[in-house]
């Protein structure tokens, strides 16, 4: 019941879209079919194929990694080494930005520092090793290198500003 209450609007939109999709398929309504078979299918495939795997890993991470260990390596006082470690973790992952949020939540719960959470989000959103070859292929090495060189300071600056901003405020990542 709580679930339905919390997601009332979302469930309404999903139900309406399901009806629209059903209607489109039933009556061969072309714009509807194009939406479903084009963009929606691409996103839904990504969602269904990748996200469950991510959440399995997050769940396992949650039960296996002891808080003290995580805290020691990427918690407050872990310094540049900790930030590099978090960035490296982010670089190796793939997927859309919303896949980073639950990981950030788990890291935070395990004692990752606030600054490193922001570094993680920034690093995750800007550079992904699995994607890098793809980028170089289409836009060239010069573009990719310049982009990365310019983006890294921006990621660090954003993390610094946000960390400063939250120094006097309470910072929490919700359990949902």
């Amino acid at each position: 019941m709580k679930f339905i209450k919390k997601h009332g609007v979302n469930i309404g939109i999903i139900a309406a879209f399901s009806l629209f999709a059903g209607y489109s398929v039933y009556t061969d309504y072309l714009p509807g079919l194009e939406i479903i078979k084009g963009n929606f299918r691409t996103f839904a495939t990504e969602l269904i194929s990748m996200l469950p795997l991510m959440f399995i890993l997050i769940g396992l991470f949650d039960v296996w990694l002891p808080k003290e260990k995580v805290q020691k390596h990427i918690g407050a006082g872990s310094g540049i080494k900790g930030s590099l470690l978090v960035a490296l973790l982010a670089f190796m992952q793939a997927g859309p930005l919303y896949a980073a949020f639950p990981v950030a939540y788990t890291l935070w719960k395990k004692g990752c520092s606030r600054f490193n959470i922001f570094i993680y989000l920034g690093a995750f959103s800007t550079l992904k090793i699995p994607m890098l070859m793809f980028e170089i292929g289409f836009l060239g090495l010069k573009f990719s290198l310049l982009r990365i060189i310019l983006t890294m300071p921006a990621v660090i600056a954003i993390a610094f500003i946000m960390d400063r901003y939250y120094a006097r405020r309470s910072f929490e990542i919700n359990t949902l």
């Binding site: 997601h7 979302n10 469950p52 769940g59 396992l60 039960v63 919303y98 949020f101 939540y105 949902l176």
Partner: peptide, 20 residues
């Protein structure tokens, strides 16, 4: 761990579905 992961997934799923 699997239960925890599944719960987190189900809780965020409606929001992500709406976005896409």
């Amino acid at each position: 761990g699997l239960k925890k992961g599944a719960m987190m997934f189900l809780k965020i799923l409606p929001t992500i579905l709406t976005v896409i």
